[in-house]
Design a protein around this nucleic acid. Structure first.
Length: 484
RNA sequence: GGCCCCUUCGUCUAAUCGGUUAGGACACCAGCCUUUCAAGCUGGCAACAGGGGUUCGAAUCCCCUAGGGGUCACCA
């Protein structure tokens, strides 16, 4: 056990998206690789936007991905006292001050700066407020925020584990707000107080926070604590290189679940976004990732996420899953599609697993898996349009199917081997290629031109259904004979 | 716009003290396998953003340019 302590600190303002999940993953891999402590903290200081149901979803997503944590969840909303007392301490030390400027006035200044195309900075109006002026403001009933007094000169250097030393001129930093007028701390302040009090040794987070880091460093300095190490991991971008958002398809872990992705695949895929184990390995278990993970191997470049590769990887995991595990994972998708009921009897469950065995080779998601298995459960078979042209419209197909049915009735046992042997015989007897026999049969019983081996399907369907579907196909062909 | 970060095949990446025909994966194309579709196997296409330096030698070090991203809130 090492003394390394890391935290994942999402704010509950939405579902866990792939960027956040990847950050959680890197925290997890790092802390497990060094044997430290993983802490989950909910950064919910924004009262307006934070929602308890998002917290639940966040936690559910983390559990689903398998990132178990050792401490927490801690909630910033329950730690208000800590922030208040630390802010009071800074106030008493004159390292922070109250500011009575109205939101409107500040907005005015910001707009002006924006118009002149320069960066806005708080002008420091209340920095050295005379006590009479302060009293006057209080009398007016003005609310105050607390701002940190930041140095005017010099520079603040962030020593980043991934990017090296990054230096910021203090002149670029204004006296930013650490406590809002409603008494809630801002992110930059709460996060620092928590990281320090919780003994966080490594802050691993997304690159978008790099520009915030000097502010946090200044907070920590004012508070008089030892600084954690930082590591800013690259962002994950949408295919058009823009920031990921709703219009880019599935971006949250929950959505990936709903689209039928497996946690192992998502985790494996995310790990390879910005990190690689070397040795040309692509498929890794969580344990293998932990073994070869290091922050030194995390690269600096933002990555565009590509669903195609994720889908390929997901297909790989679907094929690798143990039968019982696959059944368990895909059951909700079969129910959702109306293929299976809530409770399965033992024989039903058994049949379900046999169906999965037959179709798992050709599915990349659990949604596709349920789709591929549809005709094993649905009574109505819809014929593929192209297939009809190819397999049904050929001269003599109806007649062929009639012969087939007659002889099929006598086939016993109705299993894979026997039915296959039967088709071989029939081919020889009629002088037709086996493909000519199989194509219309496949279309008749599945409605499709592709899928598992025909005799595997026939065995699963059984004699009754197979013959019934062949009869239906004959009806169909007779009815549409000649029409195009 | 200021500040900060980044730049290897279409995409994810390897090449971690400068010396490689610049490697792998996804996707794509072709072949094999096969009753079909997949899967699998084999092969192919495809990259060091541009320009200057330093050096015997640069994807790798330095500078400039271009491009992309982040950030500049009483959001996190």
């Amino acid at each position: 056990m090492s003394n390394v302590r890391v935290r994942f600190a999402p704010s509950p303002t939405g579902e866990l998206h792939i960027g956040g999940a990847r950050t959680a993953l890197f925290n997890f891999l790092y802390v497990r690789s060094v044997g430290g402590t993983f802490i989950l903290r909910i950064d919910d200081t924004d009262l307006e936007r934070s929602r308890a149901d998002y917290t639940d979803k966040l936690i559910a997503s983390l559990r689903w991905l398998g990132f178990d944590w050792d401490e927490g969840p801690y909630y910033q909303s329950k730690r208000l006292m800590e922030y208040t007392s630390e802010a009071e301490r800074l106030l008493a030390d004159n390292k922070a001050y109250r500011c009575y400027c109205s939101i409107e006035d500040l907005a005015k200044g910001r707009d002006a700066a924006h118009k002149e195309n320069r960066a806005y900075q708080y002008p420091g109006k209340c920095r050295d407020l005379a006590s009479e002026a302060e009293k006057a403001y209080l009398k007016e009933g003005r609310e105050a925020v607390i701002r940190l007094r930041t140095p005017d000169h010099g520079s603040t250097v962030v020593d980043d584990q991934i990017r090296g030393e990054v230096s910021f001129d203090n002149e670029m930093l204004d006296d930013f707000i650490i406590v809002k007028s409603n008494g809630q701390p801002t992110y930059n302040f709460a996060s620092v107080v928590d990281d320090l009090q919780m003994g966080i040794t490594d802050v691993i987070r997304a690159e978008e926070h790099l520009s915030n880091t000097p502010r946090q460093l200044l907070c920590a300095l004012a508070l008089g604590y030892k600084l954690p190490r930082f590591a800013h991991v690259p962002m994950i971008l949408a295919p058009d290189r823009s920031k990921l958002s709703k219009r880019h398809g599935a971006t949250s872990v929950e959505e990936f679940y709903n689209e039928g992705y497996l946690p192992e695949a998502l985790v494996n895929y995310m790990a390879l976004l910005g990190w690689s184990p070397g040795e040309d390995r692509e498929i890794l278990t969580l344990e293998e990732m932990i073994d070869s993970f290091s922050l030194q191997r995390v690269n600096k470049t933002a990555a565009i996420y590509d669903v195609t590769k994720l889908a390929w990887m997901n297909g790989h995991y679907i094929r690798e899953y143990k039968p019982d595990k696959l059944a368990e994972a895909s059951l909700p998708f079969f129910k959702r599609r109306g293929l299976l009921r809530e409770e399965l009897s033992d024989p039903e469950y058994d049949y379900f697993k046999r169906v999965l065995k037959a179709v798992r080779e050709r599915a990349r998601t659990l949604v596709e898996l349920a789709d591929a298995a549809e005709y094993f459960y649905l009574e109505q078979v819809e014929y593929d349009v192209k297939g009809v042209k190819k397999a049904f419209k050929k001269e003599g197909t109806a007649e062929l199917l009639r012969t087939m049915i007659e002889e099929l009735r006598a086939v016993e046992p109705f299993d894979r081997e026997t039915t296959e042997a039967f088709y071989q015989d029939l081919g020889e007897k009629t002088g037709l290629s086996i493909g000519r026999l199989i194509q219309p049969t496949r279309l008749a019983i599945t409605g499709r031109m592709g899928g598992p081996g025909l005799f595997e399907i026939i065995e699963l369907l059984g004699k009754e259904k197979t013959i019934a579907r062949l009869e239906k196909a004959i009806d169909y062909i007779d009815r549409y004979q000649g029409s195009d």
